[in-house]
Simulated assay, not measured.
Amino acid sequence: MSTIAEVELPANEFALREALTSNLDAEFEVVRLAAHDSDRVMPYVRVSGTEASSMTETLEADPSVENVELLDDLGDELLYRMNWVENIRVIMHILLDEGGTVMEMHGRDDRWHLRILFPTRDALSATHEFCTDKGLTFSIKNIYDLKQSTGRGEFGLTENQYNALVTAVEHGYFDVPRDVTMSELAAELGVSQQALSERLRRGHKALIESALRVGDASFGSDY
């Protein structure tokens, strides 16, 4: 079964290391990523929180980057095309060796956050083993199977969050006025009110971040 993993990579082990660490107010979003051969990746990268002149100069000076091209300057948002040529062993392994797909990729400060679709759970395990063998960091924050019947994988919900939200909707918790109280809903799910509150809150956060693509979510909680 296809598996989605939320992972983090440290900036100092990946492409654009110098660009990220020298522009702490900038946020990088990879909007398209393709591996053309075994030693080069061509991404389209959206950058916000900086100016075109300074960012272009920074990118051109970054040793992991070649052929930087500014495609669009919208003032508060820049779109670049470039080649990544260094510190890309992890992404090459994911794309070429395991047949994975990078669904989302955001970089800021000292790390990258990725949402990756692997064709099997074994492909994810193989990637983790590859990084361990190479002395690279591959921090898995959350893993979930892609179940089309529920759709929770698409939005980064844990099973507990998904069940809490669906049960709340089915019992009218979000209706105005409400048809069920928090206490009654918690009893239905067999959990405490505090646990239910946490699941609903974190489930809402995951849905909003996925739908609106804001921030860099961490999906490490069991709730």
Rank of each mutant, 00 (worst) to 15 (best):
residue 73 D to A: 05
residue 179 D to C: 04
residue 39 D to T: 09
residue 201 R to L: 04
residue 68 V to P: 09
residue 44 Y to I: 11
residue 155 F to H: 11
residue 23 N to D: 04
residue 51 E to M: 01
residue 155 F to C: 06
residue 37 D to R: 09
residue 2 S to Q: 12
residue 204 H to I: 02
residue 210 S to T: 13
residue 206 A to Y: 01
residue 9 L to I: 06
residue 40 R to P: 00
residue 12 N to D: 14
residue 203 G to C: 04
residue 41 V to T: 08
residue 86 E to W: 03
residue 185 L to H: 15
residue 156 G to F: 14
residue 34 A to H: 03
residue 129 E to R: 13
residue 150 T to V: 07
residue 97 D to N: 08
residue 98 E to V: 15
residue 165 L to I: 15
residue 3 T to W: 06
residue 8 E to H: 15
residue 221 S to D: 12
residue 143 I to C: 06
residue 117 L to F: 05
residue 210 S to I: 09
residue 99 G to A: 09
residue 74 L to W: 02
residue 202 R to P: 12
residue 116 I to K: 05
residue 138 F to W: 03
residue 161 Q to K: 07
residue 86 E to Y: 00
residue 59 L to I: 11
residue 188 E to V: 14
residue 72 D to H: 05
residue 1 M to S: 13
residue 55 M to V: 03
residue 38 S to K: 15
residue 199 R to C: 02
residue 8 E to Y: 12
residue 216 D to Y: 01
residue 46 R to G: 00
residue 119 P to D: 13
residue 5 A to L: 15
residue 186 A to P: 04
residue 189 L to I: 08
residue 75 G to M: 07
residue 78 L to C: 04
residue 107 G to F: 03
residue 13 E to I: 14
residue 204 H to M: 12
residue 6 E to R: 15
residue 196 L to G: 07
residue 189 L to F: 11
residue 192 S to G: 14
residue 86 E to P: 00
residue 165 L to Y: 00
residue 208 I to A: 10
residue 147 K to I: 06
residue 18 E to S: 03
residue 86 E to G: 10
residue 101 T to E: 10
residue 41 V to A: 02
residue 158 T to D: 08
residue 182 M to C: 00
residue 104 E to R: 07
residue 41 V to R: 06
residue 202 R to K: 12
residue 67 N to S: 08
residue 68 V to F: 01
residue 71 L to F: 01
residue 134 K to Y: 09
residue 52 A to I: 05
residue 153 G to M: 01
residue 76 D to C: 03
residue 85 V to L: 06
residue 12 N to T: 15
residue 138 F to H: 01
